[in-house]
Simulated scan of single mutants.
Amino acid sequence: MKEFYAFMIGKLLGDGTIVKQDGRAPRFSMLHRKEDKNYLESCHQFLGEYIFLSPIIYKRSINPKIKKGFSECYYCYSRKNSMIQELYYLWYPNKKKTLPKAFIERYFNTRSLAIWYQDDGHLKVEKGKARKVVLSTECFTNGEISFLQYLISSKYNIFFRMDKQRRLILYNTKEIMYFLFLTRPFLYPGMHRKNLLDTEIKEVLKKKRTTISLPDPIPSEKPTLFINNSLYHTEQLQDSIRNKTFYNNYYALLTSRAYNNKYQINIDAKSITRMNNIKRNTGLTYNEIAYLCLLINNKKITQGD
């Protein structure tokens, strides 16, 4: 039942709605554009394990605002159900959608986040790179939007901010890539436009001289050599991305402390190539990648992790 509630939270934060006509039981409904029929079918299949739903119905509406003059969509709705009735009185206490904060805090999970994102989210990609994630929250009050910001940051350490249109926006590349990692397992057919696949640079780059900043000073008489030797562990980090274990093993170890200890180093071709692949797929900076390599080198992360 927890996963049912988690799913419903995602839908009700997104495009789902519960309506109640006078003298009738509340009904939950889902409506999506024609192009997202596969997504609706997947949602229908999931919820069908818990509640009885109507068949998926085609609808065409006159719309002079668009070029072809009409819009097309598919929708379905629930039959009379005690769980939908319970959710109606939680989410619509005054016949207007109001976020039930205690209920959401109890049942919100990664599935909720992913369904909400698929319903009402957008991923902006430029030249193959994720630039921002948008979650539509215009219909909620400022207090409710602040609650949703707090909810996501407290659970996932991801910090959305509200823009002038009262939407939640995420610009930080590292947090975007983590957000996509979290939601990826719950993406349904037709929604993979809201994801980025891991990619790798095939050609070996040239060696590079750069500045590496770290939160702690290097306890060595030859710090640049020590850092370069540690960068061998970029191979381990890159393997963890391929094996889908990077976020479980390493992400939480990144520190929020200032990276004030600076070192000029020459990074060899293989290491800089691996560092670029890691950066491309996680949004980490060279400094953060070097820091993780030092943790591995100092045995604070074992090879078996």
Results as ranks from 00 to 15, higher is better:
Ile18Met: 06
Tyr39Cys: 09
Tyr5Glu: 10
Ser54Gly: 04
Thr183Gly: 04
Met275His: 06
Leu253Thr: 10
Ile56Phe: 04
Ile9Gly: 00
Asn249Tyr: 09
Ile201Gly: 10
Tyr117Ser: 00
Thr137Gly: 02
Gln85Gly: 11
Glu200His: 10
Leu205Asn: 05
Met30Tyr: 06
Ile296Asp: 07
Pro219Asn: 05
Phe147Leu: 06
Ile265Cys: 05
Ala25Met: 13
Tyr150Phe: 10
Leu123Met: 05
Tyr107Asn: 13
Leu196Phe: 03
Pro64Glu: 03
Arg242Gly: 05
Ser146Cys: 10
Lys262Pro: 01
Glu200Ser: 13
Asn157Ser: 14
Arg79Ile: 09
Ser220Thr: 07
Tyr232Gly: 07
Leu113His: 00
Glu3Met: 04
Ser112Asp: 00
Ile218Trp: 04
Ser230Phe: 08
Lys164Ser: 14
Arg274Met: 11
Ser146Ile: 11
Cys293Trp: 08
Thr211Asp: 03
Lys129Ile: 11
Thr183Ile: 15
Gly283Ile: 11
Glu86Leu: 03
Lys80Trp: 09
Ile9Asp: 01
Arg242Ala: 12
Cys43Ile: 06
Asp268Asn: 15
Cys76Gln: 10
Ala269Trp: 02
Gly48Tyr: 00
Leu214Trp: 05
Ser136Ile: 06
Gly304Asn: 13
Leu292Ile: 07
Thr183Lys: 02
Met162Ala: 12
Leu284Ile: 10
Ser154Gly: 00
Lys80Ser: 13
Met83Val: 12
His122Lys: 15
Lys11Pro: 01
Lys97Gln: 15
Thr17Met: 07
Leu196Asp: 02
Ile267Ser: 11
Lys67Gly: 03
Tyr247Ala: 02
Ser71Lys: 03
Glu35Pro: 02
Ile272Arg: 08
Ala102Tyr: 00
Ser71Gln: 05
Lys222Ala: 13
Ile66Asn: 03
His44Met: 02
Ile267Pro: 09
Tyr150Trp: 10
Tyr117Lys: 00
Asn260Gly: 06
Tyr250Asn: 08
Gln45Ala: 08
Ser71Leu: 01
Ala269Lys: 13
Gln165Trp: 09
His233Lys: 14
Ile51Gln: 12
Glu221Gly: 11
Glu175Met: 14
Ile169Met: 14
Pro219Trp: 00
Arg131Tyr: 00
Lys194Gln: 12
Ile57Met: 12
Lys80Met: 09
Glu288Asn: 11
